[in-house]
């Protein structure tokens, strides 16, 4: 873990578990809670974020030597806002129903702390390739987290999975899971689960 020259593979894989964004870093909580009432919404949001993250990390890392440190945050935000506008227009043109379901949460990717956090914390200090891998890892980890959240809430709230009716007529949907309160409860439970697994790993001495 204290390797001074982390490999590209390490940069990629740390986003999948060790630094998985919503549960470990507790970044990007707003979209995690807001759009995960179904799997499809969650995945769409995750992919949009992944796209913006890759583009912004690449650009920030490529120009890192030419930017005065006083104006860097403002510049990063503008770069991110540009790509978010692109992603938003793409969604609106290609997948209108999803774009409608996500509503104002697509533009809100601009202020998703993950993006600025990775630009500031990683891309501005590292070359292009590791930044790309970092963006891929964190972005995919984020998408997976949203899919899991969406899966649990859709299953309990509608009794279905990706719009496919999974549980029979006997199942009484838990309406609360679709409502805002359910999002907080599921998220809190998942954070506890992640804590539980890593505590057990540490106790068993198998923590990588």
């Amino acid at each position: 873990m204290v390797d001074n020259t982390p490999t590209l593979w390490y940069e990629f894989k740390k986003g999948l578990w060790q630094d998985i964004p919503p549960f470990r870093l507790v970044l990007g909580t707003c979209p995690t809670l807001a759009v995960t009432n179904s799997v499809i919404n969650g995945v769409a949001m995750g992919l949009a974020t992944l796209f913006v993250l890759i583009c912004s990390n690449l650009i920030v890392s490529a120009i890192r030597k030419y930017v005065a440190s006083q104006v860097r945050i403002a510049l990063y935000v503008v770069i991110i806002a540009l790509f978010v506008t692109l992603a938003d227009m793409f969604l609106a043109a290609m997948f209108p129903p999803i774009s409608k379901a996500l509503g104002p949460y697509v533009p809100l990717i601009v202020v998703n702390c993950i993006l600025l956090g990775r630009a500031e914390g990683f891309a501005q200090k590292n070359p292009v390739m590791p930044s790309l891998m970092d963006a891929l890892g964190i972005g995919i980890g984020f998408t997976l987290s949203l899919a899991v959240m969406g899966g649990i809430r859709e299953m309990l709230g509608f009794g279905s999975f990706v719009n496919f009716k999974l549980l029979g007529e006997w199942f009484e949907p838990w309406i609360v899971m679709i409502l805002p309160a359910g999002a907080f409860l599921v998220f809190g439970g998942l954070v506890a689960l992640v804590n539980y697994i890593s505590h057990r790993k540490t106790a068993a001495g198998t923590n990588p």
């Binding site: 609360v176 309160a181 907080f184 409860l185 809190g188 439970g189 954070v191 506890a192 804590n195 539980y196």
Partner: peptide, 18 residues
Amino acid sequence: RHFQGISITLIIAGMMAL
């Protein structure tokens, strides 16, 4: 133990939302 920190805060937020 596993609920300490962010986790319990989120669950409280859920109850506040209710």
